[in-house]
């Protein structure tokens, strides 16, 4: 017990839901009379219930997967300063499929990649088993010039030009690992690693 007469051993047991009914009632009465203790307990329980929520537990896994990806990409970016390196800030593939939703309704994949102060938004639409239509756009891009987007994988090498809105499209791309290059003439502006 502390100088204010608070039994923190009991409070700890209360937080873990380990008190008997009569002890629990008495502790709740004690908590209600102390606003600071009330904040400590209420917020802890509120936080705990939020973390115990199934949605958060699933999101938690996604958060760690995204963090690992970002740390890897930042490491790669630090190794090469000749051009910008893409860093993923959103990938719908990392998110769990919401319960009660048929996979067919969520098979479109969206990826957001940070490129310096600009962003690359990518949408992938399945066109057959193992191949996608890829539509991308460079957002807040500081140039109106037409750029060339080169997509190089182990089995496929494709290229497309951006339009005046910095939009580009690849009608059919096979699943696999790709290195995407944003080029202006022969000059490489940015490199993005993509797993499709």
């Amino acid at each position: 017990m502390n100088s204010e007469g608070i039994d923190f051993k009991k409070i700890a047991a209360y937080l873990q839901g380990k008190l008997k009914a009569n002890e629990k009632k008495a502790t709740e009465k004690e908590i209600a009379q102390n606003p600071v203790l009330k904040t400590l307990i209420e917020m802890s329980l509120d936080w705990k219930s939020e973390l115990a929520d199934k949605n958060w537990q699933q999101a938690g896994k996604s958060v760690h997967a995204l963090l690992s990806k970002q740390l890897d990409e930042i490491k790669a970016a630090e190794k090469n300063t000749q051009w910008m390196r893409g860093i993923t800030t959103f990938d719908s593939k990392l998110l769990p499929i919401p319960e009660g939703v048929r996979p067919a309704t969520v098979d479109t994949r969206r990826i957001k990649i940070q490129l310096g102060n600009s962003q690359l938004d990518i949408s992938l639409y399945p066109v057959s088993t193992g191949s996608y239509e890829l539509i991308g756009q460079l957002i807040d891009w500081n140039s109106v010039d037409i750029h060339t987007i080169v997509l190089k994988g182990s089995n496929q090498s494709l290229s497309a030009d951006t339009n005046q809105f910095q939009l580009f499209q690849f009608p059919r791309v096979s699943a696999g690992h790709y290195s995407m290059k944003v080029k202006l003439g022969r000059k490489i502006i940015a490199v993005i690693d993509l797993d499709l």
Binding site: A59, V63, L67, Q70, F90, L94, L95, P98
Partner: peptide
């Protein structure tokens, strides 16, 4: 929404790392 929140989180974590 969940997706919007995840989108915001990605930006925040990147800025925090940097």
């Amino acid at each position: 929404t969940r997706d919007e929140s995840f989108d915001i989180f990605g930006q925040v974590s990147l800025q925090l790392i940097k």
